[in-house]
Simulated assay, not measured.
Amino acid sequence: MKNPTRTTGGPERQLLAYMLDHTRTELIDTVRGLSETEARRRLVPSMTTPIGLVKHAAFADRKWFQHILGGLPESACDGAMVGEASFVVSDDETVADVIAEFERASSRARTIAADFDLDAVRECPGFGTVSLRWIYLLMIQEFARHAGHSDILREQTDANRRT
């Protein structure tokens, strides 16, 4: 996914879509250039790794856009729908594989969202009634938070390279 041209004005839908894509790109950029070992290195007590954060983001795109908004059963979604286990990356998956998975999920999310108005609502267990606008805001928050986590992990990795 290329970093879209900066958008600072325009219709609400355009701003939300831009900011969501921007946070997706920021998250991906934190893992680009890491070796397979660096991307999997746990630098905090949790299972959080740079590649795991991108893997989880793909799950989040599938959950909210394919399953909740699009109404697809979990079995029809493009990949695993397993919550906390979504941070786990198998040994045979590469950084490039996980980035490609996230980009596919993001592309499908954009396609699905294009068919809905911002005020379209869906029922979501544990959340109640949610609108597409709310989903956009949730995903912006989610991906920005995870990009921040991954940025710190990247900073630690880069510092370890210099020592």
Rank of each mutant, 00 (worst) to 15 (best):
P50R: 12
R40P: 00
I51M: 07
H67R: 07
A76I: 00
V98N: 12
A100N: 00
T129L: 13
A100H: 02
M81S: 03
T94K: 11
F116S: 10
V89M: 01
V44G: 04
D78N: 12
D117H: 04
S90A: 11
A60L: 13
S131R: 02
V89C: 04
W64A: 11
F102A: 05
V98C: 10
H67A: 11
C124H: 06
R122Y: 11
V54Q: 04
G52I: 09
F65P: 13
A100R: 01
R42K: 13
L132I: 09
E101T: 15
G79K: 07
I99L: 06
R62V: 01
G70F: 00
R40N: 03
R42P: 03
H67T: 13
M81T: 09
A100L: 01
A57C: 07
S75G: 04
D61S: 13
S46N: 15
T94M: 06
G126K: 04
A114T: 05
K55G: 12
G70Y: 00
V98K: 00
V82P: 05
M47C: 09
A58K: 09
D119Y: 08
I51Y: 11
C124E: 05
E84S: 07
S106M: 07
S90F: 06
C124G: 03
S90M: 10
S131Y: 00
F59Q: 01
R108T: 15
F102Y: 09
S46I: 14
I51N: 13
S107C: 12
V89G: 10
T49D: 10
A120K: 01
C124D: 10
A60Q: 12
E123F: 15
S131F: 02
A57G: 10
V44Y: 09
P45M: 02
I112G: 14
K63Q: 12
V89Y: 07
R122C: 12
H56Q: 02
G52K: 05
A80N: 07
C77W: 02
Q66C: 05
A114V: 11
E123P: 14
V82S: 03
A100Q: 00
F87K: 05
D91I: 04
C77D: 04
S75M: 04
A114F: 10
G79S: 14
S46F: 15
G83F: 13
D91P: 09
A114W: 03
K63H: 13
E93C: 00
G71Y: 00
S75C: 07
L53F: 07
V98Y: 14
T49H: 08
R133F: 14
C124I: 01
V82W: 12
I51H: 04
R42A: 07
E93V: 03
R41G: 05
T94H: 06
G126R: 06
V121I: 13
L43E: 11
A39R: 04
D97N: 06
S46H: 13
A105D: 04
R110Y: 13
